[in-house]
Design a protein around this nucleic acid. Structure first.
Length: 271
DNA sequence: CAAAGGTCCTGCTCGC
DNA sequence: TGCGAGCAGGACCTTT
């Protein structure tokens, strides 16, 4: 579910309730996520103030004076603001109750998500250390993308979804950005021109920015921290639109599996 | 039964 | 031959 815009939407949604508040209790109802949730958190976090909430790639970083809580939503995870007395439901795995009586609750049916803890610099954590530039940062531009593509034989879409190359681009926005740049998802990355890469970097930035403004994409079950759907799904040009006419030329949108992931493109507008 | 928005890990292949 | 990088596939889960 959540790609960069959805995680960013979540970050903005939870901040007012969490930032600068102290943790009253940390409850682990189901520790079996992608990696076991550290049980020590129930002892470590109470009394700590959350003094920063950042996002790196699709990871949320909740900073305290003694360490950082690292949260990943995986494929089906979501964070909701709840009241302390509301009971957890099926697939609710972790609660962080704050001193204001509000709480942060992680729901994740598929349990591909993660809740981790580090007492060191979170950006040096093994999961974060080798992640590529943020796509909305200045460092991510055509030149960078072009050099990252060199000698790569994998499909350009696969390259975009590689977190070591660029952070936070998932299956939906990879397809969408490639459509806007006029590049087929299956093209070998190494065969993109400098000009292609320039257009693609720009398309990634504009697509992600627009999605963040719309509050993310709701396909099945993504909601923001208040439980509302994002409306970027209305702006999707190719994702999930197999056999529907391309908005630019009318040709039917094609669906093709690339590296085991569904990929969508217009065979006429993209080459 | 297949597929779903993520991504780490393993083991293979390829090119120097 | 040996080594490292790149890459495909499997794994983790539940729901529709």
């Amino acid at each position: 579910m959540p790609e960069l815009p959805e995680v960013e939407t979540t970050r903005c949604g939870i901040s007012p309730y969490i930032l600068n508040h102290k943790v009253r209790a940390f409850n682990i109802w189901e520790p079996r996520l992608r990696w076991p949730v550290p049980t020590a958190l129930a002892k470590i976090l109470p009394g700590q103030r959350i003094d920063s909430i950042e996002r790196r790639a699709k990871y949320l970083l909740l900073g305290t004076g003694v360490g950082t809580l690292i949260i990943h939503l995986g494929m089906s995870g979501s964070l909701r603001i709840v009241t302390a007395e509301s009971a957890p439901q099926t697939h609710d795995h972790v609660d962080m109750i704050m001193d204001n009586g509000q709480g942060l609750r992680l729901r994740d049916p598929r349990r591909f998500g993660a809740v981790l803890w580090t007492a060191q610099d979170p950006y040096q954590h093994p999961l974060l250390r080798h992640i590529g530039p943020e796509p909305l940062a200045k460092a991510f531009r055509g030149n960078y993308l072009h050099s990252a593509c060199r000698k790569r034989r994998c499909a350009i879409k696969t390259l975009l979804m590689n977190a070591h190359v660029v952070a936070g681009v998932g299956n939906i926005y990879a397809s969408e950005a490639l459509y806007h740049a006029g590049i087929r998802p299956g093209r070998a990355a190494g065969r993109l021109s400098r000009q292609d890469c320039k257009a693609l970097a720009a398309a990634i930035k504009s697509t992600l920015k627009q999605a963040i403004r719309a509050g993310g994409t709701t396909l099945k079950d993504f909601t923001n921290s208040a439980g509302q759907a994002g409306y970027f799904s209305q702006s999707l040009r190719v994702y999930g639109r197999q056999d529907q006419p391309c908005g630019r030329c009318g040709h039917p949108i094609k669906r093709k599996i690339i590296a085991q992931r569904a990929s969508y493109y217009c065979p006429k507008c993209q080459s």
